[in-house]
């Protein structure tokens, strides 16, 4: 029983890291007032960049950095369109997702079927990994998972305990007031959008270097969209992002579990649908669970700031 729990828990955490990293990034971006629906595209681009640099160099650090930068680069495109040109942010984000899907499919063709250059194997943390159950579930993961563990409190501290965080949150609520206080809203929003891209890129790196090493077309399978939904579920709070990501990972883990024990208790196709159904369900839950959390949405989310008024 304990062994099974450890098995499911470990896969659940393993399956939640990509969504978690992308959710954290998108929270920072949205808190500053920029809605970026291009997460799926940035994540895919990060996954491809990570896999490609991995094959070329065999260096895990280079591959991870390349993935994050690739996501960041795409985020800057969205930043240019939504912050500088002040176009419709939904359309710009959708265009970014289509661009990411197309570019990775086009450029990734030669990588399909090649041996992955980098595999981030589980790295048990000495000491912590020996804790019964907890150690198995949380501390026998890959390095990128530990990075995600650290980023959760860091993002929270950044947003709620620093001056920069105050500026970010204020920019998402009332950009004109922040501007009047002498703070550069454009720079702030660009940096937060970039942070969102880095998070999505890292999420992609996790998929193509650690979760299922190697490049597969459309390997994100909608996790970028799940992440955007989980931002709402988390009420734009990095600490609560953990819950949404873990729920998603948990349902993904159930598929593996039933496959592993070979019992078809629930039909396989229902199991495959569950993570998506859950994501819709949590959005419903947020909106029916009282108006408190609904008010958490940044007031200026998706609204471009125009100095000329």
């Amino acid at each position: 029983m304990i062994e099974e729990l450890a098995f499911i828990g470990q896969i659940a955490v393993k399956s939640s890291i990509a969504v978690l990293l992308a959710t954290l990034g998108e929270i920072i971006a949205e808190r500053s007032g920029v809605l970026n629906l291009g997460v799926e595209g940035m994540m895919l681009t990060g996954a491809l960049a990570g896999a490609a640099v991995g094959v070329a160099t065999g260096n895990p650090v280079a591959a991870t950095v390349a993935a994050a930068l690739a996501g960041g680069l795409l985020a800057l495109v969205h930043g240019f369109f939504s912050i500088s040109l002040r176009v419709n942010q939904v359309l710009s984000g959708l265009a970014l997702t289509i661009l990411g899907l197309g570019l990775t499919s086009f450029l990734g063709r030669p990588l399909i079927g090649t041996r992955p250059g980098v595999r981030l194997a589980p790295w048990p943390i000495p000491g912590l990994a020996e804790i019964p159950l907890i150690g198995d579930i949380f501390f026998r993961q890959s390095v990128l998972a530990y990075l995600a563990y650290i980023l959760v409190p860091l993002c929270w501290v950044l947003l709620y305990r620093t001056r920069t965080g105050l500026k970010i949150r204020a920019a998402g609520e009332d950009a004109a007031a922040v501007d009047a206080a002498g703070i550069n809203v454009f720079r702030l929003r660009y940096l937060c959008t970039l942070a969102g891209g880095l998070g999505a890129g890292l999420a992609g790196a996790y998929l193509s270097l650690a979760y299922t090493p190697g490049w597969k077309e459309s390997m994100t399978g909608g996790q970028g969209w799940v992440a955007i939904a989980m931002v709402i579920f988390a009420g734009w709070n990095p600490l609560k992002a953990v819950i949404g990501a873990f729920l998603f990972g948990g349902l993904t883990a159930l598929q593996f579990y039933f496959q592993a024990i070979g019992i078809e208790l629930i039909p396989a196709y229902i199991l495959r649908m569950l993570p998506y159904v859950l994501t819709i369900a949590v959005m419903v839950l947020v909106n029916t669970g009282g108006g408190r959390r609904r008010g958490a949405s940044p007031a200026a989310l998706g609204v471009a700031f125009n100095r000329e008024g």
Binding site: V77, V87, L91, S92, A95, L99, L101, G102, L103
Partner: peptide, 22 residues
């Protein structure tokens, strides 16, 4: 060449439209 170039061109078309509207 992968046919997905058409998807890339579609995305750039949309960005182009947004740029020209701006």
């Amino acid at each position: 060449l992968p046919s997905s170039i058409s998807m890339v061109l579609e995305a750039v078309l949309l960005f182009g439209l947004l740029l020209s509207e701006a």
